[in-house]
Amino acid sequence: MKKTIQRRLLSAAVAVMTVMVSKTTHAVNYQALVDADTRVFQSYYQKEFPDVKFDDFANGVYAIDEDARKQWMEMEEFPPYELDVERGKALFNKPFANGKSLASCFPNGGAVRGKYPYFDEKRGKVVTLEMAINDCLVENGEKALPWKKGDLARISAYIAFISRGQVVDVKVNSAAAYKAYLKGKQFFYAKRGQFNMSCAGCHMEYSGRNLRAEIVSPALGQTTHFPVFRSKWGEIGTLHRRYAGCSENIGAKPFEAQSEEYRNLEYFQTVMSKGLKFNGPASRK
């Protein structure tokens, strides 16, 4: 009886030790899991559009629609977002009441687009560029700006403009970051709304095909070129404004801009665009 108890205690101790050792020596490599997803995701588009060069996916629908591309390139000669970038620059350098400015919060003269979105381990959430801008304003006693359009989109446009060419390389290095990534991934693939549609349904399976009068853009590269001046809006707007529009289109109630749902979606989508270059702001139909 005594020997049986001793043997059981010994087995339990060995099991605990094994778990502890495996936890330290075989920590989960979240980045490797995410990189595997990214390869599958990017390969989907490269098979779907074999004639499109990888870098060109950063141009959205204009990478796959030749006629629309010609019009877009003409429009880019006098970009409709030019005044927004200028205004964004002025706002970026405008002193706060405390004498500091947005420039005090963002290093490298504000050329930081490539750093966002990232998973903030201390706050336990995804931080987007727009969120960081408003955080800086609030921390310095200024009023936060509305998320979807206006001056926040203009400041974001200026930062994107001076960051053009930075390569997308969003890291997923912890269990918490991976959880946020998975939530974004689930959001992207799950069907929702009255029309039972998903982001993937439109921007993977239907990308390159006509949906009413428009050709549907590929999801690969969608997050590289925001904020965008959209002809339909007649003004510049943020990625989350576009997300809300997509939700409406499929008959789902949109989430708030900068909600956890949309931030995680942006995180997932930007991870998937690894290797492309940030090229915002852009003009879109």
Binding site: S43, K47, Y189, K191
Partner: peptide, 23 residues
């Protein structure tokens, strides 16, 4: 609508991975 949305949510929670398009 509410009932269908709840059913949709429960179905997607279990099956979203099967919605990933493959090539």
């Amino acid at each position: 609508q509410g009932r269908e949305a709840v059913a949709q949510a429960k179905f997607m929670e279990k099956n979203w991975q099967s919605m990933i398009p493959r090539k």
